[in-house]
Design a protein around this nucleic acid. Structure first.
Lengths: 237, 237
DNA sequence: CACGATTTGTACGTATGTATC
DNA sequence: AGATACATACGTACAAATCGT
């Protein structure tokens, strides 16, 4: 094995995901400190040989890291790792949501959802409220609880977040919803409880009622109960 | 102007930021719905002509969008916009933090910091507490309040978030800290109040005390007071 | 069903900036 | 200080997949 034996990536990668694979690899190397902050990545040519792909592919991978603010490049010098405090994106590595991670993520979501409900109660417009109620009705009339129903469920929470008037709430809630979507889906399909839909609708109704009454405390409390209930139904301890 | 008149980007871009600029442009087009979900982006060749750069640069830009889960590409077919629910990253467009956005971001941070303090009070280990106290001491002994002091300040909040034992809290708080860093820096440099450091240290001390006592309510409350105070000192209404 | 036009994926070559001797 | 090696930035050529005719 004197040289460049075929890459571990170029071959077993479906096709067209080479850059993604390499980006993941480099992210890992940076994440666990193998390439420390301030240090330089191997040169593009080195990486292209290591992975058995062209420099173009390597450059596309590095471009992703730059986009996340993980590295910066200077022509003639190289690509160096930037401090964590300058990272520009918050992202979850997709396939890594095991049970513990899901619980942790739900724990992050809870205070945000509560604050979201409180702010929505205080600030919502008539239009915001219509959107919330609409999502609730779509959920109620959904025939498919797993798919159409889930979408309406996520839409409900997204609509509440939008009613805060703070687009960061809306964006982040949409992000979290998407991240949890697959997990919720499988949890629902595995669940034997036939009353989940009715219970969920009832909990949502309480939230709507409180928001409508512009009662922030009640809205936050209703949201907390809903999340705790949903969390329990999804993954009983 | 029959064709390919020189790009608005390739020329006025410093150098080496062509892909970033194009990525931003495309993100905007997707964000405001100019290119709707499910629709296809212009072909790489078209984009390269429009922006006056090579396909390589366009591909690096698109690679970034793929990394964020904004688009997906299929060889021979094209690049299409994926639904918002499948986005893989939460990021702020960097240069867009005006006063209103900062306030909105602080509003997102508040409930998270409170929850962070509460969880830290409940779960912290001795090592976690040492890290928190260490950050506090570094802040106290910092000679330069704007730079070294700010770092210690952010480290304090990061240490509290880590003490939750939930790495999503730690990661997201680090992310938010980085995003707000520049704003806080300028706010401090413009501030005339000479007591800010002492007040901040005192507020932090209250938080530490509550965490130490494993009193979640007190920790959350102390954190709330701190954030409200800091917010007021930074941007009085 | 096949073929060609179109589009993305990959490889390679050139220009330009940086560091080092 | 100049030259030389090497790094990234950018451009071009070819391969593979898709889609419509």
């Amino acid at each position: 094995m004197t040289r460049g034996e075929t890459s571990p990536i170029a071959l077993l990668t479906p096709k067209g995901a080479a850059a993604e694979e390499i980006a993941r690899h480099l992210m890992m190397l940076i994440g666990n400190g193998t390439i420390a902050v301030g240090n330089k990545l191997p040169t593009e040519q080195t990486l292209s040989r290591q992975f058995g792909v062209s420099r173009t592919v390597v450059r596309e991978a590095i471009s992703r890291l730059k986009s996340d603010g993980l590295v910066q490049s200077r022509q003639g010098s190289g690509v160096s790792v930037v401090p964590a405090s300058l990272r520009k994106s918050f992202k979850l590595q997709d396939a890594a949501l095991d049970r513990r991670q899901v619980i942790a993520l739900l724990e992050l979501r809870q205070p945000l959802e509560m604050a979201s409900a409180r702010l929505a109660a205080a600030r919502h417009t008539a239009k915001d409220l219509r959107k919330i109620v609409d999502a609730q009705q779509r959920m109620q009339s959904s025939l498919d609880w797993s798919d159409e129903g889930l979408q309406a469920d996520l839409d409900f929470h997204h609509a509440v977040a939008k009613a805060t008037g703070n687009h960061f709430y809306a964006d982040f809630m949409a992000f979290l919803g998407g991240a949890l979507r697959a997990t919720i889906l499988t949890a629902r399909s595995e669940s034997k409880n036939p009353n989940i839909k009715a219970i969920t609708l009832q909990e949502h109704a309480k939230i709507i009622e409180a928001i409508k009454a512009r009662d922030a405390d009640a809205a936050g409390h209703a949201m907390l109960l809903h999340l705790q209930g949903a969390s329990f139904r999804m993954a009983p301890p």
